[in-house]
């Protein structure tokens, strides 16, 4: 390759780097400006709403979609919030809990699932759902880096923070809703006829499950899960937070041994835990369910009432 061609290659490579760096930062700043004004839509709006109210509320629900859709915090307290997020697990919740104000008395209701706790492959990847704040919040950045769940390119391309979120941000910016402010983060599932039909098809089909293969026989808690639980407990103990753990109902769930082992482990650690997986054992009406792990708004209403009683009892 002659000198002129080499110069051309270097020139193009530099141009691509410089221009893509500038375009990336411009896009990132514009999206920051827009997304800061967004308070609807789960991935950005709900997180913004949480960051806005976390210092003032007295009751907060954390966890996955089974916390998000299954617990209506208004039933327990008018000054509350549900930051349950689809796909979130304990790593995600742990970071958010540790953003709570020091020493303010608050009740933390955390949904946990033994299937992830006993899963040796659980790697805390759910923390990546907080990536939109990676280049903006040092605590979140530190926790994501600690679990090595950042995209290594993100140090150069900051707009990766908004991967998969742009359309949602724009939609919610142009058509804002105040559902999270009104419903305090709770997202009830109004089951459509199509969803009901699909669930009925699944139940009617009556798949035979190999219980041992389905539930697994590993009863050792995953290290990352154990560390996150321990961080949450230490933070709550030190900062005047009442921590209550629970597992949400599942439809005809066969892994009773797994749940019993899990309960024993948590109680050994001095944690308050309620296993509600069989909550609908005596009332199997399909109207309470969207699918085998998510409740309809009717099921969520029943569960939230029961949760209120549990929390009052714990107090």
């Amino acid at each position: 390759m002659n000198k002129e061609n080499l110069k051309y290659l270097v020139k193009i490579a530099l141009f691509v780097l410089v221009i893509s760096f500038v375009v990336d930062k411009a896009v990132f700043l514009v999206l920051n400006k827009i997304s800061d004004k967004v308070y609807s839509g789960q991935s950005i709006g709900k997180l913004n709403q949480y960051l806005k109210v976390k210092d003032s509320v007295d009751f907060i629900v954390y966890g996955s979609s089974r916390a998000n859709h299954n617990i209506d915090p208004r039933v327990v307290s008018k000054n509350s919030f549900n930051i349950g997020m689809d796909g979130a697990k304990i790593a995600y919740s742990s970071v958010l809990i540790q953003l709570l104000p020091e020493h303010k008395s608050q009740t933390v209701l955390l949904h946990i699932d033994p299937n992830y706790a006993f899963n040796p492959k659980y790697d805390g990847g759910d923390i990546a759902a907080l990536v939109s704040k990676y280049n903006r919040d040092k605590d979140i950045k530190r926790e994501i880096d600690k679990l090595s769940k950042n995209n290594s390119l993100q140090k150069f391309f900051w707009s990766l923070s908004y991967n998969g979120k742009v359309l949602g941000i724009l939609k919610n910016y142009l058509e804002p809703k105040d559902d999270y402010a009104k419903q305090l983060g709770y997202e009830p599932i109004m089951v459509t006829s199509m969803q009901r039909e699909i669930f009925k098809n699944i139940i009617d089909r009556g798949d035979v499950i190999d219980v041992e293969a389905f539930c697994g026989t590993n009863y050792t808690m995953n290290d990352i899960y154990t560390k996150a639980l321990s961080d949450i407990k230490s933070f709550c103990d030190a900062n005047n937070k009442k921590l209550i753990l629970f597992t949400s109902p599942k439809y005809e769930y066969p892994c009773t041994i797994v749940n019993a082992k899990f309960k024993a482990l948590l109680e050994d650690k001095g944690l308050v835990y309620y296993d509600l997986v069989d909550f609908f054992k005596d009332d199997k009406q399909l109207k309470y369910w969207k699918d085998k792990t998510h409740l309809s708004h009717l099921g969520a209403e029943k569960l939230s009432q029961a949760m209120k009683v549990i929390i009052e009892k714990t107090n």
Binding site: S20, V22, V27, F157, L160, N163, V166
Partner: peptide, 12 residues
């Protein structure tokens, strides 16, 4: 290239 890279970052 810069525009395509940014689009990929945002939508991949």
């Amino acid at each position: 290239a810069a525009v395509i890279i940014t689009l990929i970052n945002l939508f991949y």
